[in-house]
Amino acid sequence: MVVERKDPDLDIALMLAFRDGDEAAFDRLFLRWAGPLLRYLERMLGDEAVAEELVQETFFRVHRAREGYESRARFSTWLYRIATNLAINELKRPRRRHVHQEEEKADLRAVGLGVEEVVDSRRLGVEVGQELERLPERQRMALWLSAAEGHSYAEVALILETTEKSVKALVHRGRAALVSRMGNCTDSMASVSRRGTA
C-alpha cells in the first residue's frame, strides 16, 4: 500500500494565503488534514470524542497563530507538533473514556476465534491497533507518525522535539514490541483454536 502523501507545497501555499487573510484557505487546510489528524489522535488517545476535541483545538491554535507562521518547515510538521503536545497533555490527565478501544474489542469479538486459517488480516489489524495503544506514548507516536503516516524521521523529530537518532530507536522499539506481542497473540489464538477443534 502506498502511503498517501499530501503536496507539502500546496499546504504551504494555503497557509501563506491564510496568513494573508484568506479564510477559505484555512478551510481547505482543515479539510485536507482533519481526517489524518483525527486518526492519529484517536490512536494516541484511544478516545474518539477527545480526539475530535483536540483536532478542533489544534486548528483553533493554527488559526490564532497564523501571523507567526513561517514556511521553513512543512505545514503538517507544525500541525502535528501542536496536536502531539495537546495529546501529551491530555494523556497526563485521567483518561475519560475508551470508546475506540471498546469498539475494537467488539469488532474482535465479532470476528471470533476458532477459525482454521492462521489469522485473517482484519483481525490482525484490529489487534495491532490495540497493541499500539499499549505502547509507551512516545514509541506509539513515533511509530504511527513514521510507519503509518509516512513522516520522515527528521519530521518526527521536530514533532516530538527530539533527535532523529532517538526517533529511529523509538520507531524500532515500538515496531519490534508489536511484532513480539502479535506473535504471542497469534500463538495463543492458534492454541485456543486447536483446543477448540480437538
Partner: peptide
C-alpha cells in the same frame, strides 16, 4: 514490515 502494513492500513 507486516506490522508497518497493518499500521498503514489503520491510517489509510
Amino acid at each position: 514490515g507486516e506490522v508497518s502494513g497493518h499500521l498503514r492500513n489503520l491510517a489509510h
